[in-house]
Computed example of a mutant assay.
Amino acid sequence: MIYTITANPSIDYVLQLKDLTTGKVNRTTSDVKLPGGKGINVSRILKELNIDSTALGFVGGSTGEMFKSLLSQHELKTDFTNVHEDTRINVKINAIEQDEETEINGTGPAISNEEKTSFLKQLESVGTGDVVIMSGSLPKKLPDTFYLDIAKMIQENGADFVIDTTGQALLDTLPLHPLVVKPNHHELAELFNTTFNSDQEIIDHARKLLDKGAKHVLVSMAGDGALLVTKDHAYKANAPKGVVINSVGAGDSMIAGFAGTFMKNNDPIESFHIGAACGSATAFSQDIAVKEKIDEVYKAISISELS
């Protein structure tokens, strides 16, 4: 089973307008409320791929009830921990003529020790053959090591894990051998205080993450495609042609496609192909990509071996 953890889920209130003028009254051309959170995005893509998952996280208050109502239409398996304070609301503003996206994210509820303990008890049964995918920000009062502590706990029980994070927090997870890490090329360069002038330089530095313990490294490069780096080989996926409508969730989709497929077939190349298709398909969609769009984009992606 795949478990996705969204410690700080949200209602994403997405507004579209022609242009945004601060300090003035702005009127939208459309708006939609979506169940948000990086782990939720992962579970939604897994659902499109017909891969079972259970979504975990902290949900509370009247906004938490609305969140669960919005999520119910996606027919995901969930096992949320109920908390006293309200689930947050994030506002995302797309100014079409300005070609700008503005986000205003809430902080989320404060999690009590009792609520944290209740959540962690859910993970006691996770073990060999399971994968836990952790991503997104942490709500108030949870320690910065929350995801890392979970990784240590489930690893002792034989489960694999993925933590979608960057910087030192990413480096701290590597000795625990995450199934896959996915920095973009800018984040990878920042890890090593350098810049890249070629794919080979990116590959060389991705292998440093493998040397530190990662099992696979995905590097997204926006319009230049993506790389998969393993101990012995490196592969590149081209960037398919399409209009980027919404970049939110593209990285989550790529992780879902890779981890979910790899859990089924243990084939890193096919997992990379599907992961790249999921990421691009979501970028080309108003919301998280549906299966038909993923299949369409999959046909436009080719995987080539670089080394």
Results as ranks from 00 to 15, higher is better:
D31T: 11
K208E: 13
I245G: 04
I154V: 02
M134K: 02
I5L: 15
Q98M: 01
Q16E: 15
K236I: 00
A234N: 01
F161H: 08
V297P: 04
K241N: 14
V244L: 09
L218K: 07
S118P: 06
V83G: 04
N8A: 10
P268T: 12
K24A: 07
G23V: 06
I45A: 08
V229G: 06
I11H: 07
V91L: 14
N82V: 14
V248Y: 09
G260L: 05
V14G: 08
A206Y: 03
D19L: 15
N50R: 14
K141N: 15
M254H: 02
Q155G: 14
S302M: 04
E292P: 07
M66C: 03
F262W: 09
D160G: 08
P268L: 01
E201C: 04
F284D: 05
V83H: 03
K215F: 02
V59T: 03
A169R: 12
T117E: 15
V83E: 01
S285L: 12
P268M: 06
A277K: 02
A256N: 07
S10T: 03
M153N: 14
T145V: 05
T230R: 12
T78C: 09
S280N: 14
N8I: 01
F119M: 12
N41A: 09
L49N: 00
T102H: 13
K152Y: 03
D267R: 13
P268V: 13
K264F: 06
L120A: 03
R44N: 08
E48S: 12
S125P: 05
N105C: 04
Q168S: 13
T4H: 01
T117C: 07
L191F: 12
A222D: 15
G167T: 05
D204S: 14
F192W: 10
M263K: 15
F262C: 01
L120R: 08
S280K: 01
G39C: 05
M254S: 09
M66S: 14
F262R: 07
V244K: 14
D211M: 09
K264G: 08
I93Q: 09
E101A: 05
T261I: 10
D79L: 01
L15K: 07
V126W: 04
H185C: 00
G225E: 09
V180C: 02
D164P: 08
G249E: 04
K68R: 14
L71M: 09
I288V: 15
K116M: 02
P35H: 05
D287L: 13
I111Y: 06
H185S: 08
V162R: 00
I274V: 15
T6K: 09
E201F: 00
P143F: 05
K215R: 15
E75Q: 15
L228G: 04
T230E: 06
Q168R: 13
L191R: 14
M221D: 01
E270K: 15
A226R: 07
G61K: 06
P109A: 11
L218E: 08
A55T: 11
L46I: 02
M153Q: 14
H273D: 07
T78S: 06
